[in-house]
Simulated assay, not measured.
Amino acid sequence: MSAVVPPSVAENSEAEALFRFETDAPEDVRLALGMNAARIGDAVVLSMRNDSTRFWSKALGFGRAEPVTAELIAEVCAFYRAEGAQMAVFQLAPSVIPEDWTEICAREGITAGATLVKLVAEVDEVVARADAPDRRRVDGVRVAPVEPGDADRWASVMLRVFGMPDKHYTGMVTASVGHPDWYPQALWLGDELVGTGTMYHVGGTAQMFAGAVLPHARNRGGQSELLAARARMAGKLGCRLLIAETGAETDGSRNPSLHNMLHLGFRVAYERKNWLWQRGQGD
């Protein structure tokens, strides 16, 4: 890739996408799930008190404009305590972790969790690779923008792949369909909706989000087609960069999503640890 992407740009893309995805949920959904959000320092802080999946309470976007300090982390943890959250995930690019991070973690009850890979790509390169005559084409599947009448079905497939329940969460997911900054795509196998992916447009970047394919429809090239469709849309919007995240490979494991993105021209920008905060017994 010809340009080096600063971590602040890569983190901003993800943080703003997740902030919009959660805060645009309907009020009844927000109340049922115990959702709240704040901007503390330059971080996006998202809380979902009644989240049975333990996924959606996240603090991210740190270090975009100001350093990470013990005082900042303490303020974020205080927010989660006030919200009654049982746990949350802190996501910080390696370059913004302060020298006293070990001491901060010990003080606040933060421990290391799974490792993610942050990927970046130039839109033009991904589109060129996707449209190359010698690229293997999909086997019986097609990608199309999500129509309003398919929003519930699209949301249900996404949640099913990620092991999340439909109740309340469907309302959060479908709120992004029709939003002017979101571009949801559906993967179809005949008349069956079998895969999902969406993209958030912020400035000159496009954030890849919620790529998911049902097990029986995998190994047909569908995920690559979902990536390609979003890259083409990003090009039409004037975006220069694509940003994505996926799980890191460890102990001989293989992540097909990672390899699909690498094959289309994404590059690993850095690996980023999930840092887990859990509510203490005395909180």
Results as ranks from 00 to 15, higher is better:
residue 51 D to S: 11
residue 68 V to T: 07
residue 203 G to E: 09
residue 276 L to T: 11
residue 117 V to M: 14
residue 103 E to S: 13
residue 68 V to R: 02
residue 163 G to K: 05
residue 270 Y to W: 12
residue 88 A to G: 04
residue 18 L to A: 04
residue 254 R to L: 05
residue 240 R to C: 05
residue 7 P to F: 14
residue 22 E to V: 14
residue 20 R to Y: 07
residue 59 A to K: 04
residue 35 M to E: 05
residue 81 R to E: 01
residue 199 M to R: 15
residue 181 D to W: 05
residue 21 F to L: 05
residue 78 A to C: 08
residue 282 G to I: 10
residue 129 R to N: 09
residue 215 P to H: 05
residue 178 G to V: 11
residue 40 I to Y: 08
residue 264 L to G: 03
residue 45 V to D: 07
residue 12 N to P: 00
residue 138 V to Q: 08
residue 253 S to I: 12
residue 178 G to F: 10
residue 110 I to R: 05
residue 168 H to N: 11
residue 18 L to N: 08
residue 229 A to V: 14
residue 78 A to M: 12
residue 148 P to G: 06
residue 140 G to H: 06
residue 203 G to A: 12
residue 241 L to R: 15
residue 63 G to Q: 03
residue 152 D to M: 12
residue 62 F to D: 00
residue 163 G to N: 05
residue 192 E to A: 07
residue 81 R to L: 10
residue 140 G to W: 08
residue 77 C to H: 09
residue 2 S to A: 14
residue 174 T to Q: 05
residue 68 V to D: 01
residue 205 T to F: 02
residue 246 T to M: 09
residue 30 R to N: 04
residue 104 I to M: 06
residue 140 G to D: 01
residue 229 A to W: 06
residue 182 W to H: 06
residue 22 E to T: 12
residue 232 R to G: 02
residue 100 D to W: 11
residue 98 P to G: 04
residue 232 R to K: 15
residue 270 Y to G: 11
residue 40 I to H: 09
residue 83 E to C: 11
residue 4 V to W: 12
residue 120 V to W: 01
residue 107 R to T: 05
residue 39 R to G: 00
residue 122 E to V: 06
residue 164 M to P: 01
residue 179 H to E: 07
residue 11 E to T: 10
residue 176 S to W: 04
residue 183 Y to I: 11
residue 5 V to I: 15
residue 234 A to Y: 06
residue 70 A to K: 15
residue 233 M to W: 11
residue 7 P to G: 10
residue 132 A to E: 03
residue 77 C to I: 12
residue 280 G to T: 12
residue 210 A to P: 01
residue 3 A to F: 14
residue 8 S to A: 14
residue 146 V to A: 09
residue 100 D to A: 06
residue 56 W to Q: 03
residue 235 G to I: 02
residue 194 V to L: 06
residue 208 M to R: 13
residue 219 N to H: 14
residue 88 A to R: 07
residue 142 R to V: 00
residue 98 P to K: 03
residue 140 G to N: 03
residue 271 E to S: 13
residue 46 L to A: 03
residue 42 D to A: 09
residue 89 V to P: 00
residue 24 D to W: 10
residue 269 A to T: 07
residue 45 V to L: 04
residue 149 G to I: 00
residue 264 L to E: 04
residue 237 L to T: 07
residue 259 H to D: 01
residue 89 V to F: 02
residue 44 V to A: 07
